[in-house]
Design a protein around this nucleic acid. Sequence first.
DNA 1: ATGGCCAGGTAACCTGGA
Length: 255
Amino acid sequence: MKIISWNVNSIRAREPLVEELIHKENPDILCLQELKTEDKNIIDNFFKSHGYENISATQKAYNGVAIGYKNQNTIRTIDLDDLNTLQARNNCILIEDQKTVILNCYFPNGNPIGTDKFELKKNWMEVMLKHLKKLKREYNVIITGDFNVIPHDLDAHDIKKYKIDALASKEARKFFFSYKNLDLIDPFEFQDKISTYTFFDYKTYKFGKNEGIRIDFFLISPYLFKKIKDTRVLKEYRDMERPSDHCPILLELDI
DNA sequence: ATGGCCAGGTAACCTGGA
């Protein structure tokens, strides 16, 4: 099973590149974040035209997430509605025959610190922790998406720029590590940090200088970690015409 | 050292991103 997660920064702007990704990688599961449209027809039509079923949570102009899936006979949707009450930020599916849940997430950015946005980030991360604790008891877990957290100083080219920033705040890091402490593993953690940056700011042309941050993740159960066939950050999609500022991340499992 | 880009929405800038 091949799973790809990508913060596309607008599905409408990124249709050509998502199409290319599907043709080249043919993922079984495609988790998208920052759709930036309320119109589910756009999302349904896109996935359907490429042979995928999908679920989505959308709102006008901002946020929005979807999971496309194919070759799956035992998919059930799990509605974690308290993660979508204010903004559309989560999808959750259960693959019953694998006893595995996949959570697709667009975590709140939270900047600037000291505002309602930061409170929302902390609250959202806390609600997520409660869900993870519960889901972990019954299922293998894959939580993926744009976490908007820089967990370690080395996950940024220049951490000094993030000293007063919600992404590297002690609160955001605390929640991120509390997820990992549920016995969830970050496969990219064991790889070279610089080559696994997932975000490069449009401003200042950071991609060309390889000055990024690592904020998109898979956190997975140990059983699934043992089944890994491949993990990749698909940096080439950041180097194409009209790119997202995030790179797709790929996880292939022998299940 | 500083500032730089991009998307959507409503009408030439604003919010938001990270």
